[in-house]
């Protein structure tokens, strides 16, 4: 990322304090969101999300697997994020490992819920095919194609859209005695089942610059942040996860204040995403 001079930094901080940022947004406004679905034909579901100059792709692949012994009635979901070297020269080679790991952990925390599976974006018990024997493993992969700040929100939005685009093949299970109780699974390649994605949360990252906090920070604005709080909120306004980045500490009262702001912003963001998803599906159908 290009460095900024003292004068430009001062200008950015001033803009945030005066509620008029460099591109004319107020503190709580998002950049225009552009959504595309079905960008990867090999995946079960995929989406591309653009937030200004930030561009991310998410894909969902489903594979048949075995449930764990501890949770025989649940499927598995894993989330992994990679940063493409096309986004920034520093991502070349091993340069992106730190950021990739940070983003993966933040998304896992915000989307997968607790150990018991409570608060998860995807109902894990809906992934079960045959209890204790077969389940669906979902591999959710994110790719940062170009980076201009606010990657967590963009990735979460892309995953939400990709999940709503995902079709899981319908399976017919037949148990017969010949194979020692091992189920015979017949995967249909014509019939697909859709997910219930209404409970998938969105993540709203509030970046604190000076005394104020902003949503959807560009990378220039992120360079001026003291800390950032990512709050994942679902449709009903429930908090599903929370992660903090940045070196500076946050006062608990400020955190509560930020959470209530995030809740408010997230409802607008969810309805915006919903309409974009609907529009993208119409385009994909054509």
């Amino acid at each position: 990322m290009v460095g900024l001079s003292e004068g430009e930094k001062h200008f950015i901080r001033g803009g945030i304090a005066q509620d008029l940022r460099a591109d004319g947004r107020t503190r709580l406004q998002f950049r225009p969101v552009i959504v595309e679905t079905g960008v990867i034909p090999q995946a079960n579901g995929s989406a591309r999300v653009r937030l200004g100059a930030t561009e991310v792709i998410a894909s969902v692949k489903a594979e048949l697997g075995k449930p764990t012994v501890l949770h025989p009635d649940k499927g598995k979901v894993s989330i992994y994020v990679d940063c493409s070297p096309t986004a920034a020269p520093i991502f070349e080679g091993r340069g992106s490992e730190d950021l990739s790991a940070e983003l993966s952990v933040a998304l896992q925390r915000c989307l997968l819920g607790g150990k018991s599976g409570a608060g998860a974006a995807i109902d894990l018990s809906s992934l079960i095919v045959l209890e204790g024997k077969a389940c669906w493993d979902l591999y959710v992969d994110g790719l940062v194609v170009s980076s201009d700040g606010n990657l967590v929100d963009a990735l979460a939005a892309a995953i939400k859209v990709a999940l709503s685009d995902t079709g899981i093949p319908k399976v017919n299970v037949s148990l017969n005695a010949e194979t020692d109780g091992e189920p015979e699974v017949d995967v249909s390649d014509e019939e697909f089942l859709q997910f219930d994605t209404s409970s998938v949360p969105v993540i709203v990252t509030l970046t604190k610059v000076g005394k104020h906090y902003i949503v959807d920070a560009t990378s220039e604005e992120e360079s001026q942040m003291s800390s950032a709080l990512s709050v994942s909120v679902n449709r009903r306004g429930q908090i599903c996860g929370l992660t903090k980045r940045g070196g500076t500490g946050l006062d608990p009262t400020i955190i509560f204040d930020m959470i209530s702001v995030a809740k408010h912003v997230s409802q607008r963001f969810i309805s915006l995403l919903d309409s974009e998803i609907a529009a993208a599906e119409v385009v994909a159908d054509e």
Binding site: R13, G14, A22
Partner: peptide, 26 residues
């Protein structure tokens, strides 16, 4: 001047014009 920030921020009216012109360029 840069250090005691708040008093020296660009006036809001000017800032509006800067943003408008910058967006026109974009």
């Amino acid at each position: 001047k840069l250090s005691d920030e708040v008093d020296t921020f660009t006036p809001i009216e000017t800032r509006k014009h800067i943003c408008r012109l910058a967006n026109a360029v974009r």
